[in-house]
Design a protein around this nucleic acid. Structure first.
Length: 922
RNA sequence: GGGCCCAUAGCUCAGCGGCAGAGCACCUCCUUUGCAAGGAGGAAGCCCUGGGUUCAAAUCCCAGUGGGUCCA
């Protein structure tokens, strides 16, 4: 079965007298010390046997168990590492959340580009797995938030020498299994009950042999030996159908589920009771969930039974429950009604911990990325809380977990939860109203609410179909929610997302040496000398490659330098600079000649402005954190010569007051004229000293990283900076705008650009003041007064027009008779409002009105007909307008129309009486 | 990053090419004095902004601004 069979034959197993067996139930191969053992230990081959029968010497809480594990591995030569944030997208762009401890070291450490913080190391890494969200609370063992305890060793083959950031072997399979055994033993486990199941691991382009470690029916650890990478020519075919070949690096990747270990030590019926005892107690009391001793006993036995079953999906739970109820001799419905509230409470506890991790690690709710996931979890939690009748604010519940997890930013977390809860409540209120009016519309008819409406309610308004059904049924309307509802929603999203054009690799560049970067040596220098190594002709211009350069290539949100390259004979203009694989390409308008010696001269003014804006970006970022809170992080930045934009994570719109305070704090930093320091420290030392906030603009590779210090603000950054904050001159925030939910953009100008920007704003104000003929200070009040006055005049004009219309109607007008009905046909060059008003006044006197106007460059008619006269105004207008080359229409009693032929207007009015008679006859 | 929805009176919304509307709130009067009181009258709108189409745009099209929502 396993092509890797040889990989699993460890000396350690030999020495310890293990047997290799095949499980008759699961067909899996496994290793055990017990000669009589037949099954592999994993459900359904074996049951949970630790419930009510703890598997270790003592019971442990989460905190105790974590400490037990970490200190065990410390004593065995591992260095303890602080956990990383749960938001993995802060250091890698292929995933959103941290789902395993190895995520902390991908991709830079596992690929060997960057050394690990310690080797070997041990860590307990908080993780979030959204995949399990539906199972949480119901299966008894799934949690969305968990800690993966782990020990890792990073090895590189002896023969590759020091090509990678680590070399040689720390330890490999035998030692890993031995450590695992020893840890079990130190916990007082009966090692003869442990089984090591052979289970090759594949993931993320890597693969390797692995063991699942089972004890008393519970999978307590996974030992992965990552040693292969995907390779079409590879010698091993793995379970994903791809071929793999050995890598130069090979890594011990273990995972010990903290929650499972605590659970097994306590032997409670569900994992939740072992992990969240206090919170569950609180929620039960708050929601008034109480049970008799018999009920309590029943629930406990049911939970224990469901633990024996192999349940991986929620659907299975309800099927399984029927069987469980049968076995306990109770009604399935009755059992369900006892379990439901508990399931909700378990889920709430787990979700609150998830939220505490997310917000504690600086995730801000949003419509995109991790922020969206956080929003989904929060809304789900809110529904559960309401459903089970917990009467406590959500921010308090999340705070209970945040406190336990020892987060320092608890006030911000609560603030975020409250804001988010408010937004959700508003969405629900909006949704409820919308559904109610829709339900009323369909309540009287036999039709149910159409599926299209249901899909739209969910997709565009965030209203769950269940909620639609509840509201609609209360109002007597029917709703059918098809089972494939969510796939219908998905259909609406089909065809989204554009394909990306493959990036072409430049082979010619591969032969060129990395360009030496002079721009970090002295950021004030603007001239240099260099040799032209190569010139590549492009569609527009030439890419010049030098041996060294002062030109800063576009990167990190800082645009490229401009300038010139001169030989003795010629000067070429550099209009763009890019870097590809370490080679700097200078886009020039002419070919300076390969092998030539050139003098480079930067566009000094441009560079200065870029530097000021870049340093100012750090200052503004720091000021924003001070004013808005520690959750503020950079979400993108673009510097320019006359302004820069800086996107930050924040959960509300930034108020005018806050903008002013940020501006003040930023300019304070400028005035303090602090030194801007550039250093290249060891990455792990820097990270330990300054924390993860160092990486605002992404994580650079390498052993050492470039760090820029401005006052108390420290960031990894590759850009060019001024020497002291005073060199920025001034910082002016121009605007703030929302880029997406949870991300605000701050646009600002620095130095002379700040002055220009301020002047431009003032110009607008002075111009407005001059138009109003008042001082700038009086502009707001005057504008207000003028606007009010303007509105009043509009009303007055309307009133006068209707008075004028009445007067006109009452005046002596030529009246004609259309078969007994009096009619007025008149030319009146006014706008449509005047015509309408006059026509209405004439109609009020019981006469037919036909008015024509040539105002506004076109011929226009309005026709009004009093009640009881069988003339169709629309038809009349249609006929008249047709004669001036246009069209028109309207209801039978009042119509308007017109056309471009103004000259024909009088003739048409002349013929109008005949037209009226025709229409009457018709 | 992409899709979809929305913007009209203080609030909630209807109108969807042809005279700017309703309910609630507000003001005045009458009736009544027990929990969303009733009746009569009234005031209150740059129909988000800017273009376009049209004889005519709150209404249709495009762009912008603001808000909502779903998905990766």
């Amino acid at each position: 079965m396993s092509e890797l069979e040889e990989e699993y034959r460890l000396d350690y197993f030999e020495e310890e007298g293990f047997y290799r067996k095949q499980c008759p139930v699961t067909d899996a191969y496994f290793w055990t010390r017990d000669p009589d053992r037949e099954t592999c230990g994993e459900p359904p081959a074996d049951d949970y046997s630790f419930i009510d029968n703890p598997g270790f010497d003592e019971e442990y809480t989460l905190e105790e168990m974590r400490e037990k594990f970490l200190s065990f591995f410390e004593e065995h030569g591992h260095e303890r590492i602080e956990p990383y944030p749960v938001a993995a997208n802060r250091w890698r762009d292929d995933v959103l959340l941290t789902q395993a401890s190895i995520y902390d070291f991908q991709p830079l450490v596992t690929s060997g580009q960057t050394p690990p913080p310690a080797n070997p190391l041990t860590i307990s890494q908080p993780c979030i797995r959204m995949q399990d969200i539906d199972n949480v609370g119901k299966t008894g063992r799934h949690t969305m938030a968990f800690e993966m305890m782990a020990h890792h060793a990073f090895n590189a083959r002896e023969e590759v020498g020091d090509e990678y950031a680590y070399s040689g072997e720390v330890y490999w399979k035998d030692e890993t299994v031995e450590l695992c055994d020893q840890f079990f033993e130190s916990m007082g486990a009966d090692v003869s009950e442990i089984t090591y199941i052979e289970d090759p691991w594949v993931g993320g382009g890597n693969a390797g042999p692995a063991f699942e470690v089972l004890y008393r029916g519970a999978e307590l650890a996974t030992l992965v030996f990552m040693s292969m990478e995907q390779d079409p020519e590879g010698e091993y075919e793995m379970k994903d159908g791809n071929r793999y070949s050995p890598m130069d690096t090979y890594i011990v990747d273990t995972g010990y589920g903290l929650e499972r270990w605590a659970w097994v030590s306590q032997g409670t019926a569900t994992v939740y009771e072992a992990v969240y005892p206090d919170m569950i107690q609180f929620l039960k009391e708050n929601a008034g969930v109480s049970m008799t001793d018999e009920e309590e006993e029943l629930v406990h036995r049911a939970a224990k039974l469901s633990g024996y079953l192999d349940i991986d999906e929620v659907d299975d739970v309800y099927e399984a429950r029927v069987g469980i109820a049968d076995e306990l001799g109770v009604d399935a419905e009755e059992l369900t009604s006892l379990l439901r509230p508990l399931e909700d409470i378990y889920a709430i506890a787990d979700h609150c911990r998830t939220l505490a991790y997310m917000f504690g690690d600086g995730i801000v709710p949003s419509n995109v990325g991790t922020g969206y996931l956080a929003r989904m979890v929060l809304r789900r939690t809110k529904r559960l809380v309401d459903n089970v009748g917990v009467d406590a604010p959500l921010d308090e519940l999340v705070d209970m977990q945040a406190e336990r997890l020892d987060y320092q930013n608890r006030d911000t977390i609560r603030d975020i939860v409250r804001t988010e809860e408010r937004k959700y409540r508003e969405t629900l209120e909006r949704g409820t109203r919308r559904v109610e009016s829709l339900a009323d519309e369909y309540a009287d008819s036999d039709e149910s609410i159409p599926l299209d409406d249901l899909v739209e309610l969910y997709d565009s308004h965030g209203i769950q179909p269940d909620m639609v059904r509840d509201i609609a049924e209360a109002r007597g309307a029917t709703v059918d929610v098809p089972d494939n509802f969510y796939s219908l929603v998905a259909d609406r999203h089909e065809g989204e997302g554009a394909s990306e054009a493959a990036e072409e690799r430049e082979e010619r560049l591969a032969d060129l040496p990395d360009t030496e970067k002079l721009y970090y040596d002295d950021q004030e220098r603007t001239e240099f000398e260099a040799v032209v190594l190569d010139v590549i002709e492009r569609e527009e211009g030439f890419d010049v490659v030098l041996d060294q350069t002062m030109f800063y290539p576009e990167g990190g949100g800082q645009p490229a330098d401009h300038g010139t390259l001169s030989t003795d004979d010629a000067t070429v203009q550099v209009t763009d600079v890019q870097i590809r694989d370490g080679v700097v390409l200078h886009r020039a308008d002419a070919d300076p000649g390969k092998g030539e010696f050139v003098r480079g001269q930067l566009d000094v003014e441009r560079r200065r402005r870029l530097m000021r804006h870049h340093t100012a970006t750090h200052v503004v970022g720091h000021a924003a954190r001070r004013v808005l809170g520690d959750h503020v992080r950079q979400a993108g930045a673009q510097k320019g010569t006359d302004r820069a934009r800086f996107d930050i994570t924040h959960y509300e719109r930034i108020s005018r007051e806050e903008v002013k305070r940020i501006e003040q704090v930023a300019n304070d930093i400028v005035m303090q004229n602090l030194a801007v320091k550039q250093e290249w420290p060891d990455r792990h030392e820097a990270q330990e000293k300054y924390g993860f906030d160092l990486y605002q603009g992404g994580i650079p590779p390498g052993r050492n990283i470039r760090v820029i210090t401005v006052g108390s603000d420290v960031q990894a950054c590759g850009g060019t900076h001024v020497r002291r904050t005073g060199d920025i001159g001034a910082i002016k925030i121009l605007t703030t705008e929302p880029v997406q939910d949870g991300i605000e953009r701050i646009v600002f100008a620095a130095g002379d650009a700040a002055i220009s920007a301020t002047q431009a704003t003032e110009d607008s104000l002075y111009e407005a003041a001059s138009v109003l003929d008042v001082t700038p200070e009086d502009v707001p009040a005057t504008a207000e007064r003028f606007f009010t006055e303007w509105k009043d005049r509009g009303k007055t004009i309307d009133r006068l027009k209707s008075e004028l219309a009445e007067a006109r109607a009452a005046a002596e007008t030529e009246e004609i008779d259309i078969d007994g009905t009096p009619a007025v046909v008149q030319r009146l060059d006014g706008d449509a409002d005047e015509l309408r008003a006059t026509a209405n006044a004439i109609v009020d006197e019981g006469k037919v009105a036909v008015l024509g106007s040539a105002a506004g460059g076109s011929a226009q008619f309005v026709v009004g007909v009093p009640d009881g006269v069988s003339i169709n105004a629309g038809e009349v207008v249609g006929e008249l307008a047709g004669r001036v080359g246009g069209g028109g229409g309207g209801p039978p009693d009042f119509a308007q129309g017109g056309g471009p032929d103004v000259d024909a207007l009088d003739d048409v009015l002349e013929e109008t009486p005949n037209v009226l008679r025709q229409v009457l006859d018709a």
